[in-house]
Write a protein that binds this DNA or RNA. Structure first.
Length: 117
RNA sequence: CCAGCUGGCCGGAUGACCGCCGCCGCGAGGCCCGAAAGGGCGCGGGGGAGGAAAGUCCGGGCUCCAUGGAAACACGGUGCCGGGUAACGCCCGGCGGGGGCAACCCCAGGGACAGUGCCACAGAAAAGAUACCGCGACCGGGGCUUGCCCCGCCGCAAGGGUGAAAUGGUGCGGCAAGAGCGCACCGCGCUUCCGGCAACGGCGGCGGCAGGGCAAACCCCACCGGGAGCAAGACCGAAUAGGGACGGCGCGGGCCUUCGGGCCCAGGGAUGUUUCCAGCCCAGCCGUCCGGGUAGGUCGCGUGAAGCGCCCGGCGACGGGCGUUCCAGAUGAAUGGUCAUCCAGUGGCGGGCAACCGCCAUGGACAGAACCCGGCUUACAGGCCGGCUGGCGCC
């Protein structure tokens, strides 16, 4: 899956809908085209030093590889943001965090789109 | 055995499945792209974080900028001696000073007669000294209890007291009291000789003592240093906007109109400047080409002051020779995820006098390459190997 690399893509995704779970926050933005889905990862300095940030990003990448590839909708950009517990949280819990976040964004109980005014 | 000092090293191991980033090879076969070369997919092989990758504090390589060369000045840095090194503010070996019974550890360690300055508080006095309390014979005056007190003159700096520091220390002599005034030892300065490449050390001699501290205050002396950095720099290079050249078409605004036209008004530029006149060009659209540059891409980018092994020289830092290896190269940034077993460590239970054994649980320090080397500094769970010192015990 193609990676997001441009800052403006991340900014755009941040304005779209999101779902926050203990281990991570997932953002999903419908680009409005039918291209292949893309994914990006964020680990801020708030999380800790370089070792912590790298490990969090790697775990998120693994999550995306195993669970997002099949479920991603075309024309969408996904951004996984690491949160404090993501460094030490059990991998199985992190997986659950992701799948339920994805479910909430794909099948909202009521529309949560907050942008595109 | 106990206590301590010190040098070097390691920085969890093995395996399974699923992945990531480079590299090499294979394939006239297969699939996709391409005119081709080739690329992607595929198959096989091999590599993929550190001792600090960190802080970015020094020294270099490399790159660009500036510069005819050199020197001086300014500014910054370094500062015992000798050696090592590409170089260093680093390292090694010494010297001196301080601490420790010792092994060993620590030191910003040139110059204070070149000059300027500072030394709070306290204290009489803080740098050509000073005399607060004090010590003292002669002389002069006074008092009286007639050998003492007070005052003056004069001599002095031992003792007291202040301070971080008071113009050498201790002892004896000397004296009215004292003072290097004299002597001995210690310290200090100069010096013959000896040892050492040197810093410096040693024996002796001379000098009665000259030298307060601060140079991490300015300063003086010696030596070193151009600036900026891989976001350096080189090359390729869209879309869009803008620039230039050429060609074609066209020629501003307002009002009126019978759509033929009429009337009124006007901008900018260049030839040194200003004013006036005349002429020229521009102002819009389209096309082609050119150059700069942005996004993006490629290179820079790892054969090197390289690693490993052996031998030789050196107390050592290190140097030399021979052999051998090719060993990360990302750029929203690879080097991972999960699991199992084991090895240290920790806790609990049980057995045993104890060393220890068994079971269960727990559990992995500091920290992530970003152009590359040499250092320094800082962080760090736990462990391994060696050397030395002191004490106790035994032979």
């Amino acid at each position: 899956m193609e990676r997001l690399k441009r800052r403006q893509d991340f900014v755009a995704a941040a304005r779209a809908s999101y779902a926050a779970m203990p281990g991570l926050t997932l953002q999903a933005r419908n680009r409005g085209d039918e291209g292949s889905p893309r994914v990006g990862f964020t680990a801020t300095k708030k999380l800790g030093n370089a070792v912590v940030r790298n490990r969090v990003k790697r775990r998120l990448r693994e999550i995306a590889r195993q669970h997002l590839a099949a479920a991603a909708l075309p024309g969408h950009d996904y951004v996984l943001i690491g949160r404090q517990p993501a460094f030490a949280r059990a991998y199985a819990d992190l997986e659950k965090d992701f799948t339920s976040a994805l479910k909430r964004l794909h099948h909202p109980r009521r529309p949560v789109e907050k942008d595109q005014s």
